[in-house]
Amino acid sequence: MTALVNCRNVEKSFTKGKQTVEVLAGINLSIEEGDFLALMGPSGSGKTTLLNLIGGLDHPTGGEIEVNGKNLNALSSKALARWRSENIGFIFQFYNLLPVLTAQRNVELPLLLTKLTRGQRKKNAATALEIVGLADRGKHKPGELSGGQQQRVAIARALVADPKLLVCDEPTGDLDRDTADEILDLLQTLNAEHGKTIVVVTHDPKAADHARHTLYMDKGKLAEAVSM
């Protein structure tokens, strides 16, 4: 297997006024294609920050990030936007669906950036909804769906452009135990059967059970995986 994600000496600091907060202090990380990685650690340790860098939502202040053979440092924000739409699926704690659009249209949204025809877009969105088990909920608005269902729609939206890498920031953080397990099962299926590489930031120890690897983060540094 080749490494899909390569972080070399990645640093990130935020400057507010005169104060500079160093959040990531030289991260070295490589994630193999097909991996399912759980990233754990205390609040404020920099998990989200690292995930955002891998997903191309932000630029590092030091070091290099390479994803799917592309050096992200070199991309302009416009090029990065395009790159994200083709390569990364994002899943958030609070689903982040657009409330004014139906589930079907939320899922279709990323495809507006592709050259697909209207018919193809609709078809692909329907397929993605089917994969997450919500084929019959396409016409519902997010407000009419449960938290677990909304997260499934969000997963369908992350899948629809067929990216290699899914990055998930506490995808079960807002769900009850059973629903959380269903979502974790779904992610596991996507990893095992659809070959998606998945990085999950989580506080949920059970998430680690579904992952192939677990990494711990503390104060902006990665610690060795401790097997439990």
Binding site: G55, L57, S77, K78, A81, R82, W83, R84, S85, E86, F90, N96, L98, P99, L109, P110, L113, R157
Partner: peptide, 15 residues
């Protein structure tokens, strides 16, 4: 604002 950020996340450019 969060919604617009989501659109950007999905790959919609700033413009």
């Amino acid at each position: 604002i969060p919604e617009l950020a989501v659109l950007k996340t999905l790959g919609f450019t700033d413009s």
